[in-house]
Write a protein that binds this DNA or RNA. Structure first.
Length: 514
RNA sequence: GCCAGAGUAGCUCAGUGGUAGAGCAGAGGACUCAUAAGCCUUUGGUCGCCGGUUCAAUCCCGGCCUCUGGCACCA
């Protein structure tokens, strides 16, 4: 089996999970599930980034140890995964020994190779904020904002990683591998960024200022800079699992593309003589009312509330259906309800329910054997073939929103097919030809539903299982083998009814426009 | 300022050198298996602005306007 290793960014444990975190997990999970269905040997990693100044500071403010603080927030992130039905194979914390060991090894190796040197850094330091400041932090008149307290210029000795020497190599690599970053315009952005000369990367923090980190193996007076530590998680988690690295895709948000994932990470790997991952998949942000969501403005939407109200599948469906991977998207409850009602409740959910009802009522609760397909059946089957052949490449190219759109078009066509056959009329006739057509139509709608649902399996795994279950059907081990139109449902005993996506409110019609 | 993305029906978006499409919302209709769901029909647009190339541009070129994001080492 072809290995397929996929990661999310690891979340920084300095704040609670929000919609953006949830989206990234779901997107990565959909890709992971899809690749498993396609027969790949998938390894899906997610985790948390636990070191650094902010964690140390937050812990201190709470009067607990950094580890205790990290334990607490990490548990919160970890608890989100089962709620979203995330199928990760592993969960890494950067405070785990397996990770720290690899970080030390890589640092030592780079040091031995002469890629790391010591030098003085000079800059303006805010004692109150415990951080160095940049010119951009200044007020327009050149003074420092009040929040920084007293700012002094200090000189500090630190260790630096020779990034600059690899700049041309990176430009060449990206030029030759134009699909390294998806979507492609992000890759152009990185090349644009690389037109400016790189500076070497400071990878150490003196221990007097920061204790919460991995000590440098060659100088115990320093801990490792948090990005250098964090990025290595992708490799440290699988370093002892042959065959996985470098079959990796990193799913990240656009905010951490440049410079960490597009510059530091490739250069770190290359300098350490490790192969580069297959690629970076860069997603956009969820906005609310056109504004970036943030806790400070109080518009951060808690995904857990929506999951509690509508279920994980509906949440997963919405974020994957609504967002074109790579672009930004707006998230509103209204928009969520529109998709939920029209696509999940009315189109798909109702198709499930009416199929069960009609099979129970006109087919004695078992899916009949279909007769020879007439024009209506042939058209629907032809549409299925087209839909399947379009959806698979779309999913392989991360175009899940389009894949769902096509699949929903097929569900709509199935509803239209039912109207065309009108089994409720056929059920009133005792003519043998009508009875034959009735059996065919019941079998056809069930088969069509089974197939449509198979295409939604990765996005809504629980709903897909549920629908197969009420159809009295258990899919085989090979997903690809499920995608053929045939008579495998004949004889399956169906449930009487199922309201899979209940409407949240009694059909409140929006006021008409003038 | 530089770079990138985007400006198309009320909303969200697709699209092609030959006088524009989908879904949702709105309107009308026939039906009743179903979560007043589904199905059929239908009303909406001088495709951001100004020039140019062309027999012909929403799609190509130039300029402009507006929106969004990035422009680092955040120690």
């Amino acid at each position: 089996m072809k290995p397929f290793y996929i990661t999310t960014a690891i979340d920084y444990v300095n704040g609670s999970p929000h919609l953006g975190h949830a989206y990234e997990k779901v997107l990565t999970d959909v890709i992971a599930r899809f690749r498993r269905q396609m027969g790949d040997r998938v390894h899906f990693l997610t985790g948390v980034d636990e070191h650094g100044q902010k964690v140390q500071k937050s812990a201190k403010a709470r009067g607990i140890t950094p580890q205790a603080y990290a334990d607490e927030v990490s548990a919160e992130f970890r608890a989100l995964l089962p709620k979203l039905n995330i199928s990760n194979n592993d969960f890494i914390r950067t405070t785990e020994e397996r990770h720290k060991k690899v970080v030390r090894q890589v640092l030592q190796q780079l040091h031995d190779q002469g890629e790391i040197y010591q030098a003085e850094y000079q800059g303006f330091y805010s004692g109150r904020q415990e951080q160095f400041l940049q010119d951009k932090d200044r007020n327009p008149d050149g003074s420092w904002p009040e929040i920084y307290g007293e700012v002094t210029e200090i000189t500090e000795t630190n260790y630096f990683f020779k990034l600059r020497g690899y700049q041309q190599w990176l430009v060449d690599f990206l030029t030759q591998n134009e699909n390294f970053i998806f979507p492609r315009f992000r890759q152009k952005q990185v090349l644009e960024f690389l037109k400016e000369p790189l500076n070497d990367l400071c990878i150490s923090r003196p221990r007097e200022r920061l204790e919460w980190g991995i000590p440098l193996p060659f100088d115990a007076g320093y801990v490792t800079y948090v990005w250098f530590d964090a990025l290595l998680n992708y490799y440290s988690a699988v370093a002892d699992q042959p065959g996985l690295w470098p079959a990796a895709w990193h799913v990240i948000g656009k905010d951490i593309l440049v410079p960490p994932h597009a510059v530091y990470w490739p250069i770190m790997l290359h300098a350490a003589k490790l192969p580069l991952p297959h690629g970076l998949l860069v997603h956009g942000w969820w906005l609310q009312g056109g504004a970036k969501m943030s806790k400070s403005t109080g518009n951060a939407l808690n995904p857990l509330d929506l999951i509690a109200e509508f279920g994980a599948d509906a949440f997963r469906y919405f974020v994957i259906r609504e967002m074109n991977v790579g672009q930004d998207s707006d998230f509103t409850r209204e928009q969520f309800l529109v998709r939920y009602n029209s696509e999940l409740a009315n189109n798909l959910g109702n198709l499930v329910n009416r199929t069960l009802n009609m099979t129970t009522r006109f087919g004695a609760g078992a899916i009949p054997v279909a007769g020879a397909p007439a024009e209506a059946e042939q058209e629907l089957q032809a549409l299925w073939t087209r839909t399947r052949d379009e959806v698979l490449p779309l999913c392989e190219g991360f175009q899940f929103h389009s894949a769902i759109e096509r699949t929903m078009g097929f569900i709509t066509a199935t509803n239209a097919y039912i109207e065309r056959r009108a089994p409720w009329k056929l059920g009133k006739s005792s003519e043998p030809a009508d009875q034959e057509l009735l059996r065919t139509s019941l079998a056809t709608m069930a088969e069509s539903l089974r197939l449509g649902v198979a295409l939604l399996q990765a996005v809504m795994p629980a709903a897909a299982d549920r629908i197969n279950s009420v159809l009295g059907y258990r899919p085989g081990p090979s997903w690809m083998n499920e995608l053929t139109w045939d008579g495998r449902l004949a004889g399956c005993k169906v449930a009487e009814a199922l309201v899979l996506f209940p409407r949240p409110q009694p059909a409140a019609k929006a006021p008409a426009k003038p």
